[in-house]
């Protein structure tokens, strides 16, 4: 495939035809933040944290989905780019609990983001209020505090929790549940605007939805909004300790697909099972048995 050459921050970078500006930035070793982008999902380009300045374009462009075209001139660290990236990070951190989103935190430090300048976080609304919000309507704010997406943790099954206070609405879980991996379509984005949220139909609990508990949504969630019950409970009890954890790769003990597993152990017990994205067999996706069916190992003791 022929290469195209573009100019990034004054330097020529060549990438294969069809590659994105993001791929070119990464080829050039430029640290480009991304939140909604993932190698194994279709780009939705909604977070806008990867935007770059493209000569001749009125607005900034999302590097994750814009194809590199010969002769493009791109700036990744102009004042405009920095302002937009900083503000996007601030907007998220001022409205969402990003305490477990390590990469987002790192980028916030890099860009000096100050989410506090929009005011203190507003008190959380009543339970279920976000699920009941009506498109096109909202109560006028006082302005004294910054509105957030805070809401109670949804715990409606024994395998994973949905803590949407931590949801940045990157759409990754919807894609992984849908046509990018599982084709189950148990969840979608519902509502509109700031009240947009990930939801089952009529916000029914997961056991009443089409969910098949593949947990591929957990695998792609960048903020810890979707989490194994085991991890959630250990965190709540203060017994989740990444410094005492080891990770190793192996193969799922169930069917003949041969999914790669990345198993985390702590104190001689399995505490979490994921699948590496770069695994060619299923690109990081699993089924309920592979993701959750490992508990027999510990239960023999």
């Amino acid at each position: 495939m022929p290469d195209v050459t573009i100019e990034i921050d004054g330097k020529a970078v060549s990438v294969p035809e069809g590659a994105t500006i993001l791929a070119a930035c990464r080829a050039a070793g430029i640290d480009t933040p991304t939140l909604c982008y993932l190698e194994n999902l279709t780009p939705v380009n909604v977070c806008r944290v990867c935007v770059v300045e493209l000569e001749g374009s009125r607005t900034l462009v999302p590097s994750c989905s814009r194809q590199a075209e010969s002769g493009m001139k791109v700036k990744t660290d102009s004042a405009r780019v920095r302002t937009s990236r900083t503000m996007v990070l601030e907007f998220l951190a001022s409205s969402v609990d990003v305490s477990l989103a390590d990469d987002l935190q790192r980028q916030m430090r890099r860009y000096g983001a100050q989410p506090g300048r929009y005011g203190p976080p507003a008190p959380p609304p009543k339970a279920d209020q976000r699920d009941a919000s009506v498109a096109g309507h909202h109560d006028p704010p006082s302005g004294d505090a910054a509105h957030t997406v805070a809401q109670p943790v949804k715990r409606d099954n024994e395998l994973y929790v949905r803590d949407y206070t931590k949801c940045i609405l990157c759409y990754k879980c919807v894609e992984a549940c849908g046509s990018d991996a599982q084709n189950t379509f148990a969840i979608a984005v519902a509502g509109r605007g700031f009240d947009a949220r990930i939801s089952t139909e009529h916000a029914v609990p997961l056991p009443d939805s089409a969910c098949v508990y593949c947990g591929n949504c957990i695998g792609v969630c960048p903020t810890g909004a979707l989490m194994f019950v085991t991890e959630h409970d250990r965190r709540a009890q203060g017994t989740w300790d990444p410094s005492r954890q080891n990770k190793g790769e192996t193969i799922c003990p169930y069917c003949g697909v041969g999914c790669n597993l990345e198993v985390s152990t702590q104190d001689g017990e399995i505490v979490k099972v994921m699948s590496p994205l770069e695994s060619g067999v299923t690109n990081g996706h699993l089924c309920i048995k592979g993701r959750f069916g490992w508990q027999f190992v510990g239960k023999r003791r």
Partner: peptide, 11 residues
Amino acid sequence: GVQSGLYSSPL
């Protein structure tokens, strides 16, 4: 079911 019976499946 000896393996899979030991985790709680909502299904």
